[in-house]
C-alpha cells in the first residue's frame, strides 16, 4: 500500500505536469487561430457528448504544419539552429578537451579544487554569464578597447549581435557540460595503458590518438550531446548576443507566442522541434545506458 503511494505520487505529478501538457501542445498545434480567449479554436466541449468529441476531432487539421513548410522562416530557423548547435558543439569540444585532459593529469590533490572551479560558474546565473559577454563584445566593449589599445585593429570589430557572439556565448556557458564527462572518463583511465602503448613503440602523440582518445570516447559523446541538445532550443543566448540575422528556433517560438500571440503556430513549432530532438535524445540515452552497463 505504502509502496503504491510512493510510486503514485511522483508518477501522477509527472503525468499531469509533463505528459498531459504535451498532448495539449499537440492538440493546439492542430487547431486554428481565433480572436478569442483562449486564442485558438476548437475547444473541447465534453457537455456535447460523443457528438461534441467527434465534432472536435473533425475540426483538427495539419494546417499549421503546412504553414511551417511554406514560410521559409521556419525551416531556415530549424536548419540554422541545428547548424549553430553542431558548430558550437565542435568548438566546445575543442576548447573543453584540453582542459579536461589537463585536469585529469593534474596532481591528485589539486583535482577537487579544479573540479570546483569548473562547477562554480555552473551554479551562477546563466543569464548573468551571458550578460557578462555583452559588455565585452560590444563595439565600445572591453575586447575592442583592448585590441584598439594594442594596435591590432584600427576600427572596432562588430562582434555583438552576430553569430560569432552567439558561438562565444554558447561555448562559454556550456563548457562545464563538455568538460565534466570527458574529465571523468579520462580520470578513470589506467595510466599504465599509456606506458604500455609507448613501450610498444608509440610516440606520445600516437599513444594519445590510439589510446587516450578512444578510451575517452564515451565522455566525448556524452559531452557533445549534453551541449548540442539544449543548444538547439536555446533562447537566451541568441536573443541577447545574437542579431537580427541570428535565426534560432527557440527565439522564433518565443516571438510567435509572445509577440504574434499565434498559439497554434507556436505549438506546431514546438512539436517539430521535439521531433528533431527525439533522435539525439534517444542516441544520448543509449550511449549512457551502454556506459553504465560497461561499468558493471
Amino acid at each position: 500500500m505504502r509502496r503504491a503511494l510512493l510510486i503514485a505520487v511522483p508518477y501522477v505529478w509527472l503525468l499531469a505536469l509533463f505528459m498531459v501538457p504535451f498532448f495539449i501542445v499537440l492538440k493546439i498545434s492542430l487547431s486554428d487561430t481565433a480572436l478569442a480567449i483562449p486564442p485558438y479554436t476548437p475547444t473541447l466541449d465534453l457537455s456535447g457528448g460523443w457528438a461534441g468529441i467527434k465534432d472536435f476531432f473533425s475540426q483538427l487539421d495539419l494546417e499549421n504544419f503546412v504553414w511551417l513548410t511554406e514560410d521559409d522562416l521556419y525551416w531556415k530557423a530549424y536548419l540554422s539552429s541545428v547548424k549553430i548547435a553542431l558548430i558550437s558543439t565542435v568548438l566546445t569540444l575543442i576548447v573543453g578537451y584540453p582542459i579536461a585532459y589537463a585536469m585529469a593529469r593534474a596532481p591528485e590533490e589539486w583535482r577537487p579544487t579544479l573540479m570546483m572551479l569548473i562547477i562554480l560558474p555552473f551554479w551562477t546565473s546563466f543569464l548573468i554569464r551571458v550578460y557578462a559577454w555583452m559588455g565585452i563584445l560590444s563595439n565600445e566593449g572591453y575586447l575592442n578597447q583592448l585590441l584598439l589599445w594594442t594596435g591590432i585593429i584600427s576600427t572596432p570589430l562588430t562582434i555583438l549581435n552576430t553569430n560569432t557572439a552567439v558561438y562565444i556565448g554558447i561555448v562559454y556557458t556550456y563548457l562545464p557540460f563538455m568538460i565534466l564527462p570527458i574529465y571523468s572518463a579520462l580520470e578513470r583511465m589506467d595510466g599504465s595503458l599509456i606506458e604500455a602503448a609507448e613501450d610498444l613503440g608509440c610516440s606520445r602523440l600516437q599513444a594519445f590518438w590510439l589510446v587516450t582518445i578512444p578510451l575517452s570516447r564515451p565522455g566525448i559523446i556524452a559531452g557533445c550531446f549534453l551541449v548540442m541538445i539544449p543548444v538547439i532550443g536555446e533562447f537566451v543566448i541568441p536573443s541577447l548576443l545574437g542579431g537580427s540575422g541570428t535565426l534560432m528556433i527557440g527565439k522564433v517560438l518565443w516571438e510567435e507566442f509572445f509577440s504574434n500571440r499565434d498559439w497554434p503556430v507556436a505549438s506546431a513549432v514546438a512539436v517539430v522541434l521535439l521531433l528533431i530532438l527525439v533522435i539525439p535524445i534517444v542516441l544520448f540515452q543509449r550511449n549512457q545506458q551502454k556506459q553504465t552497463e560497461a561499468e558493471k
Binding site: L14, L15, L17, F18, M19, V20, P21, F22, I24, V25, I28, F225, L226, I229, P230, I232, G233, E234, F235, G250, L253, W254, F257, W263, A266, S267, A270, L273, L274, L277, I281, F284, Q285
Partner: peptide, 21 residues
C-alpha cells in the same frame, strides 16, 4: 522516461506546454 526527458528538454517547450495546461 519522464524522469530523464526534462533534463534535456528545451525550456521553451516545457514552458509553452505548461502554460497551455
Amino acid at each position: 522516461g519522464m524522469i530523464y526527458a526534462p533534463l534535456v528538454m528545451p525550456e521553451v517547450i516545457t514552458g509553452l506546454s505548461l502554460l497551455l495546461l
